[in-house]
């Protein structure tokens, strides 16, 4: 074994370290999922054992009594609307910033980017009173607009950067073909910008789905709440029944995980593009 590969045990150790770290990421979710099947006495007996029976009663309770599906639909509607609106508004602006800059347009761009980190806590107090005056509390619209305002800066940043990479010649050719403003967006920018748009859509969806503070403040009626907000009601209502809590948490987690399995590629790209977490 002369000196060529002195670090032989290295990869094995690294692999083991990865496994241990990986286990720390799997365990809480596994714990949550498995304990969701238990009855309350069984849970209190031991939280680490596998459930004796895999009965779905707790999940059924979440649907029949807590009506968590209503909240899931709210979340879905709000998140999808936020994605569509953010993409539409962001794409228009990003196209202008990338391909039709005018005097001072860069300054406008910088101001928009600067607003990216404005904390929601700051804007939420006046917005709450504004919405209240307009009677928009407890409507999905209130949350969608907040999500839109929060998502536009990152969206514009991402799309502008990407659209800049689209060769000018293609746009010019489209203009010669008689495309107007929207024609170029439809025929050139959107098809060629799809990867960045998908990255942004994934992030906006996940952020809106997982957002807590804004819907917590703006949606007070149980049947209008998003699933993440409804969880806080669930946790306090089933304070002494952890298995029910686990079932609810599991149900709320599943859509995000499913999305993740399909759209992982975009997430990785998004992170590397300096997009929002």
């Amino acid at each position: 074994m002369p000196g060529r590969k002195p670090l032989k045990p290295g990869p094995v150790l690294v692999f083991l370290a990865f496994l241990v770290l990986g286990a720390s990421f799997v365990f809480p979710f596994l714990y949550m999922f498995l304990n969701a099947f238990k009855s309350t006495p069984e849970y209190y007996k031991s939280t680490f054992k596998l459930p004796e029976h895999y009965n779905w009663a707790n999940f059924a309770t979440m649907v029949s009594q807590f009506r968590i599906q209503v909240n899931m639909l709210n979340s879905l509607f709000i998140s999808m609307s936020a994605v569509l609106l953010t993409t539409a508004v962001g794409m228009l602006a990003a196209y202008v910033f990338a391909k039709r800059p005018f005097r001072k347009s860069h300054a406008v761009y910088l101001v928009i980017i600067f607003s990216m980190f404005m904390p929601n806590q700051v804007t939420l107090i006046p917005l709450y009173f504004l919405y209240s005056k307009l009677g928009l509390i407890n409507t999905p619209f209130a949350v969608i607009i907040c999500s839109l305002a929060a998502g536009i800066p990152a969206c514009i940043m991402l799309l502008t950067a990407y659209f800049k990479g689209i060769p000018d010649e293609i746009c010019e050719a489209a203009i010669l073909d008689g495309c107007g403003f929207f024609g170029i967006i439809r025929n050139v920018i959107f098809p060629l910008g799809k990867p960045a748009i998908a990255v942004n859509a994934t992030f906006v969806f996940l952020r809106t789905w997982n957002d807590f503070l804004t819907p917590l403040v703006l949606l007070t009626k149980r049947e209008t709440q998003t699933v993440v907000v409804a969880l806080s009601a669930l946790v306090s209502r089933y304070q002494s029944d952890p298995p029910y809590q686990m079932a609810g948490l599991t149900i709320a987690t599943i859509p995000a995980i499913v999305m993740y399995l399909f759209l992982q590629k975009y997430l990785v790209e998004g992170v590397n593009a300096g997009s929002i977490k």
């Binding site: 009173f129 209240s132 005056k133 009677g135 509390i137 007070t220 009626k221």
Partner: peptide, 22 residues
């Protein structure tokens, strides 16, 4: 009928709704 939990959060929201008269 809207079920609520009476809490300081609810009272804060009630105040906001009240000054907006809704």
């Amino acid at each position: 009928v809207t079920p609520i939990e009476v809490s300081s959060e609810t009272i804060a929201k009630f105040k906001a709704a009240a000054i907006a008269k809704n």
